[in-house]
Design a protein around this nucleic acid. Sequence first.
DNA 1: TCTGGGGTCCTAGGACCC
DNA 2: TCTGGGGTCCTAGGACCC
Length: 451
Amino acid sequence: MRPEASILHLDLDAFFASVEQRDKPSLRGKPVIVGGISGRGVVSTASYEARRLGVHSAMPTHEARRLAPNAAYLSGRFGAYRVASRQVMGILRQLSPLVEPLSLDEAFVDLAAGHVTDLSMEGLRQLGAETRRRVREVTGGLAASVGIGSSKFMAKLACEEAKPDGLVVVEPGTEADRILLLNVRAIPGVGPATAERLLRLGVRTVADLRQATPTELRRELGNNTADWLNDLAYARDDRRVSPERGAKSISMEDTFAVDYTKVDELEPMAARDGALVAQRLRKAGLFARTVTLKLRLADFSIHTRSRTLLGAVDSDETISGVAVSLLRDQAYLVPQGVRLLGVGVSGFTTEAQEALFEVSAVRSDESRVEIPQATVRHPQGGYRPGDDVTHDEYGPGWVWGVGLDLVTVRFETAQTGPGPIRTFAKTDPLLRPTPVLVPDDRDSGPGWLEE
DNA sequence: TCTGGGGTCCTAGGACCC
DNA sequence: TCTGGGGTCCTAGGACCC
């Protein structure tokens, strides 16, 4: 905790859904849901109109469809989200070089390390308002909420309080009183499991937390969590804003439309995900020593196997080979039904340390597995709801609906106002996906998130 | 037609080393 | 000879976040 309120937290409101409403005028003021739109998908972001119907992030999409049958269901356009994110981070970096992005739509800023000199309450309110105004202007209309306080904890809570589309500055000295009535679930880092344990101690609110004895907290939660919670109960938090933390792992996973029960069917998936991960690794200029294979079974249990190699690698063949080998180690689980398979790498270095015998060990020990093309990821091929398309006659639009052979397009853009709908054959030579404007994405961060 | 796809951090036990 | 302690690396699982 600092003597002055010099940490700012910014969060874009209903980020993905807001970008969609910005670029699709006919969706403004309507419920919009971005997320997995297939049978086993979940909601990533719901617009505020959809939230009013009871839809929220992490909710299974089929449930959302029941609550909001008339909402627009979109897969998401990550290129567009990255562009907006980059614009916002740019605005924040003008306040201070110390910007810590937490995801595409959220960041901390250390104002004391920057060019901001007036840290008075009035000065901070102006700064917050101006930042929100700039975000709206530069991104073409996106709403951001801002919280400012004397620690990361207070700034984040203030931002939460400010939503939607608001600003809260917490006056230094008032922190400990302000949080007394908060439910412990409002503390970032306290999830369902920790809340449940706390409840067993009769702890519901921050005030209850102060009443609990350190001994019983430690017994129930372990020393680390107990001490950390005890500090937060009095709003003590001196975590620094640390920008540019390099990635520690890269992974890819897929939930299947139906469960798989045979290892042979899963091997190509493991190989493909391994190759995709290797591709991203090379793009980032990294090498990895550890490969992890993850399975989620029909009963939703998660099982991981990892192997750390003697050297750091980045080739499709090695990573795929290890992934397949790890899958074979887990083969005994497969008959229970596998609903998700994932491959991840970690233990990064910036130089190759490929130990040759390891590669050959993988090759000789494992029969070669053919690596299918990445396009398998979207087996329906081509068009997904919400995607940008261009028609030679009608111009730019977006995919409104996809049928067996047909695709329905709404011709409108951020600038046009609501536009007309037309249906085409998927194979129509005049229609094609609009090339995505992806910023070169060294600092792209996690790809998929809810707001 | 129950429950995504990224990530981060922590814990705990065993191997191994000094 | 009858019992150490610290540190690091590795693995598996779990909690949590957006």
